[in-house]
C-alpha cells in the first residue's frame, strides 16, 4: 500500500471517529442537563455516574418548583420567562426598525461619512461591553432606569444593533442593483423601492437577523445582572437562574430544570431555523 492509500483509508476512519467525538462533546452536556433535571436529588447523590433515568425515579417535581410562583413556594420562573420574552421581543423589533434603514443606507446610498459609519459599527461591535456598562450603570442609577425593563431593552438594542447592521448590509449588497433600477424607472420613490423591492428580497436575511437578535437578548447576562439585581419581579430567566445558584441550598437537579427552561426556547428556535441562521451569519464571510 502506498502512502496515499494509507492516508485515505486511515483518514476515512479517523473522520468518522472525530465526528462521533464532536457529537458527543456538543450534545452530551445538554443530554446530561435533561437527565439530571428529571432525577430526584437523592438518587443523584447515590449514583452520580448514571446516564439513564429509571422509570421509577422519573420526576417532574423539579420543574414544578422552578416554575411555581414564589408565593406558592416555587422559584417564580414563569414571571422570568415573561420578562425575558418581553425584553427579547422588544429589543428585536426595535433593533430591526432602526437597523434595516441604516443597513440599506450603508449598502446602497452614497452619503457624507458612509465609510466612517461602516467602520464605526465594526469598532463598536468589538468594544468591551464592560466599558460601556460603567457609565450606563451610572446614568441608569441617576435617571431611575435601574430596575426597569425598558432600560434593559435600550441596552440590548445597543448590543444587537452593530451586528444586525453588519449582517443586513452584507445581504443588501448582494441584491442586484438592476432590480431597484427597474422599480425606479417604473416611478417608485426611494421608500417605495425599499418597501416593495429590497425588503421582500431581504426577508430571509431579516428573519435570520431577528432570530439572532432574539437569541442575544434572551441569553444576555451581564447587563441584566447590573441593572435588575435589586428587583426580583423583573429578573430575566438568565439572571433568575444564576441567582438561584447563589441563594440558599437549592438542589442541583432544580438548577438543571431551570437550565432546561432557559435553554429549550433557544434550542427549539435554533433547530427550526438552522439553515437560515448558519447561512445568514456567514453570508459575506466568504469574501475574505
Amino acid at each position: 500500500m502506498d502512502r496515499d492509500m494509507v492516508e485515505t483509508v486511515s483518514l476515512r476512519w479517523l473522520r468518522r471517529l472525530v465526528i462521533a467525538v464532536f457529537l458527543l462533546i456538543t450534545v452530551f452536556p445538554f443530554y446530561y442537563m435533561l437527565v439530571l433535571s428529571v432525577r430526584p436529588i437523592e438518587r443523584l447523590l447515590l449514583d452520580p455516574g448514571a446516564l439513564v433515568v429509571g422509570f421509577g425515579e422519573l420526576t417532574v417535581a423539579t420543574y414544578a418548583e422552578v416554575l411555581k410562583a414564589t408565593d406558592d413556594g416555587g422559584q417564580g420562573f414563569l414571571t422570568f420567562i415573561r420578562n425575558s420574552g418581553m425584553v427579547a421581543v422588544a429589543a428585536t423589533v426595535l433593533t430591526l426598525l432602526v437597523a434595516i434603514p441604516g443597513a440599506y443606507a450603508v449598502a446602497r446610498l452614497r452619503f457624507f461619512g458612509r465609510r466612517q459609519v461602516d467602520f464605526l459599527f465594526l469598532a463598536v461591535y468589538l468594544f468591551p461591553s464592560i466599558v460601556i456598562a460603567i457609565p450606563l450603570f451610572v446614568v441608569f442609577t441617576r435617571a431611575g432606569l435601574r430596575g426597569s425593563l425598558f432600560g434593559l431593552v435600550l441596552v440590548y438594542i445597543s448590543q444587537t444593533l452593530p451586528v444586525s447592521v453588519y449582517m443586513l448590509k452584507n445581504y443588501f449588497e448582494t441584491i442586484p442593483v438592476s432590480l431597484e433600477e427597474s422599480a425606479a424607472i417604473d416611478g417608485a420613490g426611494r421608500l417605495g423601492i425599499i418597501r416593495r423591492v429590497s425588503l421582500p428580497l431581504a426577508m430571509p436575511s431579516i428573519m435570520a437577523v431577528a432570530l439572532y437578535d432574539f437569541m442575544i437578548a434572551w441569553n444576555e447576562f451581564l447587563f441584566a445582572l447590573l441593572f435588575l439585581v435589586d428587583k426580583p419581579d423583573r429578573w430575566t430567566v438568565s439572571l433568575g437562574l444564576s441567582l438561584l445558584a447563589d441563594g440558599v441550598e437549592v438542589p442541583k437537579t432544580v438548577l438543571m430544570a431551570g437550565s432546561v427552561v432557559l435553554t429549550l426556547p433557544i434550542v427549539i428556535l435554533f433547530f427550526a431555523s438552522e439553515r437560515l441562521l448558519t447561512e445568514g451569519l456567514t453570508s459575506g464571510a466568504e469574501k475574505g
Binding site: I19, F22, L23, T26, V27, P29, F30, Y32, M33, M215, W218, N219, F221, V237, S238, L239, L241, S242, A245, L255, M256, S259, V260, L262, T263, I266, V267, F270, F271, E274, L277, T278
Partner: peptide, 19 residues
Amino acid sequence: VRASMLLPYVAPVVAVTFV
C-alpha cells in the same frame, strides 16, 4: 451533525456554565 455542533454557541451562557 452541523446543527448540533452549533449548540454550545447558541445555548444561553448561564445554562451551559451550570451544566
